[in-house]
Design a protein around this nucleic acid. Structure first.
Lengths: 117, 117
DNA sequence: GGCTTCCCATATGACATCTATGGGAAGGAG
DNA sequence: CTCCTTCCCATAGATGTCATATGGGAAGCC
């Protein structure tokens, strides 16, 4: 069983939006998806997830309604809005640029051609 | 001139340690290095950098002493400790694992083989 | 009826980063 | 030698995200 890693701040929103890509899902389902999909390396606590969902909804990235879960519990189902879907791709793009810069600088020294002073 | 991006939390420490890889450098020099090496895309504010340097020193990752800058100003020169050097590589490794997981999940769906429910 | 499970929710705290501000010390202009 | 600018360090306050701790409501089971 691989140990789990703390989330890097700023990445949770993208993960949530990705979890909702296919169909409306309730909070516990999002957490479950994250756990399964990363083989348990990335987990989100309830106290982290629910505020994040409310933030995303307040910003119009997702919307929600009450429903019943597969196990007959009252559950709030979230789904992506068009705005959220679009925002996901722009965020992903920014993230990938950042990672690329980090990779070059940290691993290979520079993004340009500086060395030493 | 490319616009600059906000730092992702948790990445500044690695960038600082990387900046100090070759020789002792003062705070302003670290900021300058970061700007040059990323072609201006990654910048660090003074109010962010100096507390970060003090945190790293408190944790024994770097150590410092007063000196004179190239321009004859009083400057505090920081250098890596062996502990800091080692820690850099473990952090880099963790970061790369995280990025790899994110990449697979966000871009290609899963790290395993889940889809839908 | 009491216990457990499922799902939602908030309060509280920790912490990194940004913004704003200021100070000391050296150099240059006049 | 005085004023102004530049260089470098430093901290206070605000912001925002994530972790921890806690609890509650509702369904199902014994």
């Amino acid at each position: 069983m691989p140990e789990s890693t703390a989330l890097v701040k700023g990445t949770l929103d993208m993960l949530i939006l990705r979890a909702l890509r296919w169909e409306p899902t309730h909070g516990a389902g999002v957490a479950e998806w994250m756990r399964l999909v990363t083989n348990g390396t990335l987990r989100v606590e309830e106290g982290t997830l629910y505020p994040a969902l409310r933030r995303l909804e307040a910003r119009g990235m997702i919307e929600s309604e009450w429903g019943a879960s597969e196990r007959h519990r009252k559950a709030r189902y979230y789904q992506l809005t068009p705005k959220g879907r679009e925002w996901f791709w722009t965020e992903l793009d920014k993230w990938e640029r950042y990672v690329d810069t980090m990779n070059r600088v940290l691993r290979y020294g520079t993004a340009g051609s500086i060395r030493g002073r």
